[in-house]
Design a protein around this nucleic acid. Sequence first.
DNA 1: GAGGTCACG
DNA 2: GACGTACGTGACCTCT
Length: 950
Amino acid sequence: MDTSADVTAPLDSAPRHLYLIDGSAYIFRAYHRLPPLTNPAGVPVGAVYGYTTMLWKLAEDLHKADGPTHLAVILDKGSITFRNDLYEHYKANRPPPPEDLVPQFPLIRDATRAFSLPCIEEAGLEADDLIASYALAAAERGWNVTIVSSDKDLMQLVGRPHDGGGYIDMLDTMKNQRIDLPEVMEKFGVEPERVGDVLALMGDAVDNVPGIRGIGPKTATKLIQEHGTLEGALAAAPAMKPGKLRDSLIEQAEMARLSRQLVALKDDCPLPLPLDSFELTAIPPEPLAAFLAEHGFTSLLRKLGTAPAEAPAAGGVSASAPVGAAETRQSLPEWPAIDTGGYRCLQTLDDIAAWVARAQAARLVAVDTETSALDAMQADLVGVSLALGPGDACYIPLGHRGSDMFAEAPVQAPREAALALLKPLLESDAVLKIGQNIKYDLNVLARYGIMVSPIDDTMVMSFCLDAGRSEAGVGGHGMDELAKRLLGHTTIAFKDVCGTGKKAISFAEVPLADATRYAAEDAEVTWRLHRLLSPRLAEEGGTRIYERVDRPLVPVVASMERHGIRVDRERLAGLSAQFAETIAGLETVIHEKAGQPFTIGSPKQLGEILFDKLGYKGGKKGKTGQYSTDQSVLEGLAAQGAEVATLVLEWRQLSKLKSTYTDALQAAINPATGRVHTSYSLVGAQTGRLSSNDPNLQNIPIRTEIGRQIREAFVAEPGNVLLAADYSQIELRLAAHMADVPALREAFAAGEDIHARTARELFGTVDRDTRGRAKTINFAILYGISRWGLAGRLGVSADEAQAMIDRYFERFPGIQRYIHETLENVRAQGYSETLFGRKTWFPRINSKNQAERQGSERAAINAPIQGTSADIIKRAMARMNPALAAAGLGHVRMLLQVHDELVFELPEGDVAAARAVIEAVMAGAAEPAIQLTVPLGVEIGTGPSWGAAH
DNA sequence: GAGGTCACG
DNA sequence: GACGTACGTGACCTCT
């Protein structure tokens, strides 16, 4: 190795040049200067584009003479600062930012993170103060500093603040102009250290700094030039020639002094991140590529592909070749194998603080929580694991105890203090928190007062890429399965750590060594998964749906789960008792009719009683050799006059209602909150729908009168009501749009009864019978029609069913074409797509097994429609809380989602206002990305209970 | 754990 | 000519 370079330019004395970017000020200027671009999802991104090109240019200057060696972006956070304590009207005159700039603010952080650059913001401090503090700290160490801004307040900093220190100048990237001493002198006529005095006299209309009325820049400059300082000018006032100026100076002296304080930069703020962490290194291309692709910045994306300065960082994956699930294992990054023996267990506050600082600097950390139970609303926090890279993970035990009452708890940092260290990291806008099913961690930590943000979720990312792809097993997006499939790694099984069944122990009792291996491994796996999935989203077109629909939904759904819904326990208990009595009576009669006691709930025994013992006809055995006894069979028997079948149907209905609803829901009431908290799965349905479990609140009875009583037990708190908002016929409306069916579009536009219209088209007349048949056919279309299926439902022959289908295609041209084109696409690409770009894979679409293939075909016809509907309500959900808050309805709570329905709880007096906002958000949820050719109808009802709200 | 059944959109 | 007939879910029960 050539060491001469070290002698001539030892590393320690290499010139450092820190660039501090005044991000918040920049985007306002970029907004006004650039055309109103929108990204593919329809979000305005003009200012973001300007900001991105600016960062790009600065990053390109790395290694160039006088280019940055260190770089950070400083942002304003919130609007209340210490200056408001000095002067309550400070910045009070600011008009609200333009409407199409607002959604761009968070994107500025995304852009910064995409460049892997540090992003600093602190509550209570303005960007100017942080910039001043960093600039001074750096200059004191002899670094040169360039402040990327044209803010006149910051001009106070220009020059060399200390003997032997570094030099501070400014750069106006819009005008491509350096701002140095001559420029400051030209603008203010005084040295930088006197600029504050000039500003104090002249005031600032935009920031609402009062200054002295009647004194503008010219007079202010002249006064300071003559008297040296503000105090000098004020002291000299009595001796000035009588006049307005003299009087103003004397009368408003205090206002001037206050203004002096307001314009003074606070240059001694604590520095959230050390200066050294701002070192500018090669920028990893994958996150940047993902960001550029998401927003359609194609020219930069092309540059990224060729720019030599942007060479991939070590360990990165190739950004060029698409990485499918199947190919991934061949193109694994060159990471060392996962070694669970090398993890740190952090048992002191000092160790935790050190890790938190590293994570802050890394700006991206994988997080996993360990708890005492599966239910996020009841589980106690036992520990937190973090990962920053391959082999770089730790576990922080917080709630471990001895394995029995005699064993002592292991050494742990005190929980409160440890969480206080973690909180700023987990809540920092500048640090991305990655989790596998992070909604769970969000909810657990929220109960400890930590609102984790911003987040990425590897499970949801996997779903956006590979929904439907996993051939075997349910889910397919769980950590263990992803680790195996994408990383080729088998994770430590939970049951190997905690055991199963009766011998299972709580994670709190797991010895720290084992707990550390298990927990830190999960965090490291999550980190690695993120590194793989993030570029794939951009390459495979998953960014749009992930960034615009599913990722924003995670915190929204988490908050719905935490709110829960109140159920009336007494009412359910009353129903349970009532049902129990009827069930017992039915049981006696059924046994009498059967001539013997048997288990009515056993389809096997019931089938034998009905068809073998009692000799009823119509018994059909399935492939398991068992009689079918489902509802349609029993209804058939009942029509033959089999009273026992009628009784069994009634028994079944009541047993179902009792065990699944009236009993189970009472047990599901959370003792701490008194409410029922479901858990939604964001990856539960291949089409993109949510699913609900523990308990499932998406299948609460409504279709029968007796079942509907259960809905009445879902109630609002006193003084409040429940509001239910349903999309009306959303799937048929989407079919009308997607298949472009004129007759259906017209009918929806005119607000017609759509099934009646269908009946008229198909049968020429509308009555109860034809409308009902038309409704069945409409659903059949959505579900992928077969003549046998329709025949079975309508009780007609297959030929007659076929004739109806033909007639449907004739009267509603477009449907047949939609089905044909959808299937052609799925066969060719392997997946279907929603209007918003959500993919669902159909690996069996070309199967040789006809049943399998036809099943896939029906699902593939339905998936774009069901999935688009799911996308739309998800978009509405993501926008709902901000829209309500903007209307002063921040206390309205969104509680439940049932596929095409949202349920809210709100004070009775707010119904009218909330109704308008909810209706508007839901009806407009497809826009601006998609302009539907049919209106989206929303029906809203309110009442003291969910039942009453319908 | 699988199969049958049935609650919902 | 058989295959098994509508799309998407989750919970409970029985029985192996």
